[in-house]
């Protein structure tokens, strides 16, 4: 796959001297969903702002679809749709007018059939003549998405698209994103919600303090860093772990009612069969067994902590 967005050594120092981005390089492939994870103030929004033309980079280059965002900004921006983090909407405008305005700003001729399709897809068609300030928060957010899609962008930036959105709406949003991906749109989303990245992203980037700590395939990342835990529930609680099981580095939890064994899913031998046999040999009776895969959240927290250390 070719690179749709190419960011090279991007630095951004704000007027006050704050260095928001410290030389970020990143290639985003055409048609993928990239999730950028990071704590507040990590530089996620600055990165998006620099690509979209809202912030001027201090140094470094950005190209979108092969067009430099400074020297060939018209062609570059034509390809980009941006859904900002804040709900920035003109309150007294009707939904249809708002979307029409956005399309016009991008130099596109009026195309009400296309706008109808977009509004229907986002379940906003019934509200097309409603004023923006009459809509619920979730609907306003969808208006922002409709505006961003009005000129049929090839790259869509979603800056925290599901912040403050209820669970049902979040699932709808994910479906919309999946639909856009199916249409071939490249999607970059920033999020606080790890499960969001886990649910919809192809690749995950972790950003903290203006630096990109890693970008990796989500599956590979989870496999590489994913640790799995086997939890063995015991019939009778034990006071301490039997000597015979010392080699397994077990932990005792739930007042001695369960043993936790951590293992690497990618290792040749996980050691589970032997462990279970030795637990039986040590005279303990199993009541149940459970496994738990560490989530992206665990990985993320680990990475950011490591970086802070």
């Amino acid at each position: 796959m070719t690179a749709m967005v190419k960011i090279s050594d991007l630095r951004k120092i704000y007027d006050g001297g704050f260095e928001a981005l410290k030389g970020v390089s990143l290639e985003i492939r055409e048609g993928e969903i990239l999730a950028l994870l990071g704590p507040n103030g990590a530089g996620k929004t600055t990165l998006i702002s620099a690509v979209c033309g809202i912030a001027v980079p201090t140094s470094g280059t950005i190209s979108v679809g092969g067009h430099d965002t400074i020297t060939d900004y018209r062609a570059a921006r034509q390809l980009i749709g941006l859904v900002p983090q804040e709900i920035n909407l003109e309150p007294f405008q009707k939904v249809m007018d708002a979307v029409r305005f956005s399309r016009g700003l991008f130099g596109c001729k009026r195309d009400d059939a296309l706008l109808e399709r977009i509004l229907r897809q986002l379940s906003l068609w019934d509200k097309r003549n409603a004023k923006v300030n009459e809509l619920s928060g979730g609907m306003k957010r969808r208006v922002l998405i409709a505006k961003a899609l009005s000129h049929e962008p090839r790259v869509l930036f979603l800056d925290e698209p599901t912040a403050g959105v209820d669970v049902e709406l979040r699932r709808d949003m994910w479906d919309t994103v999946a639909q856009l991906k199916a249409d071939g749109v490249t999607i970059i989303l920033t999020t606080h919600y790890i499960e969001e990245a886990e649910a919809i992203a192809d690749r995950v980037g972790v950003i903290a303090k203006g630096e990109l700590l890693l970008v990796e395939e989500k599956a590979a990342l989870m496999a590489r860093m994913g640790r799995k835990e086997l939890i063995v529930d015991l019939q009778e609680p034990v006071a301490e772990i039997p000597e015979a099981l010392a080699a397994y580095d077990l932990r005792l939890i739930e007042d001695g009612r369960a043993l936790v064994y951590t293992y690497d899913t990618t290792a040749d031998r996980t050691g589970i069969t032997n462990l279970l046999a030795e637990i039986a040999a040590a005279g303990l009776t199993l009541r149940d067994i459970r496994t738990h895969q560490s989530s992206l959240e665990d990985i993320f927290v680990g990475l950011v902590k490591e970086d802070a250390a």
């Binding site: 900004y73 921006r77 034509q78 900002p84 920035n88 309150p91 956005s102 991008f106």
Partner: peptide, 16 residues
């Protein structure tokens, strides 16, 4: 007003 309510992002990110 667009600066105040934040909608100016659209004009800044559009090919204008």
């Amino acid at each position: 007003f667009p600066k105040f309510i934040g909608t100016i992002y659209e004009q800044l990110s559009a090919p204008v």
